[in-house]
Design a protein around this nucleic acid. Structure first.
Lengths: 111, 111
DNA sequence: GGTACACGTAAGCCATGACTTACGCGAACG
DNA sequence: CGTTCGCGTAAGTCATGGCTTACGTGTACC
């Protein structure tokens, strides 16, 4: 159920900005936080959430921690969304049938 | 920027449950709320959010309001996520280069 | 035309979570 | 080795938002 965490993680605008800054390669926390309207600790907290959602990976190099995009979280969300796609295409079919949900009273038989 | 609203909408678990109940065809509010651990007004509020995010559509039939899945919101999210996919594949490339982010001091020339 | 149904909206409550500042810890540099 | 750098964590604050109950509105039935 990683998709749930991933969706929750991507819901926050600033956290999304943090995530988007990882496009183009791994970056240390300081570089990510630079220029953002929030403090560096805030960025650290966001990265923690993103990491738990499998949206980023972390590796250390000396005193720095590099973060990079992890495809696992993205993949989980994508699969979740795809589950609706096919169903949505059958929407009209279900519309035509509409067994479960009928009008309270039969429309008096259209002749 | 519908993808932002859509992500925020799909972040909430109960709202996701509401959304998932629309798989297989349109349903009126009462049918959606039936069996859920929250009140019917709560479901109405969730549907309002989903509608603003282009995740559901509404049409009226008498006194009922039927809600169905709208692909627009899903498509917006999908496109947003796809934007990362290609970039993520170049992660290793960027890893190899890593221009912008170098160690503070050159590693004293490996040799 | 009054009653009952299906639903949206208003107002208020309360938990969650996004932020801040302060602190601690380990790795590098001199 | 002391200092500085880069970062995570703790604790506390404040706004957001998800929920409730109460109410209002329009459509169907008799």
């Amino acid at each position: 159920m990683t998709y749930a965490n991933a969706l929750a993680a991507l819901a926050d605008p600033t956290r999304r900005t943090v995530f988007e800054r990882l496009r183009g390669g791994a970056k240390p926390v300081g570089a990510i936080a630079k220029g953002l309207p929030v403090s560096r600790p805030a960025v650290s907290q966001h990265l923690k959430v993103l990491k738990e959602a499998r949206l980023v990976t972390e590796y250390r190099d000396g005193t720095r921690r590099f973060y990079a995009i992890d495809t696992q979280g993205l993949e989980a969300v994508r699969k979740y969304l795809d589950g609706f796609w096919d169903e949505a295409l059958e929407r009209f079919k279900a519309f035509a049938e509409a067994d479960e949900v009928r009008p309270r009273r039969r429309k008096r038989k259209a002749k």
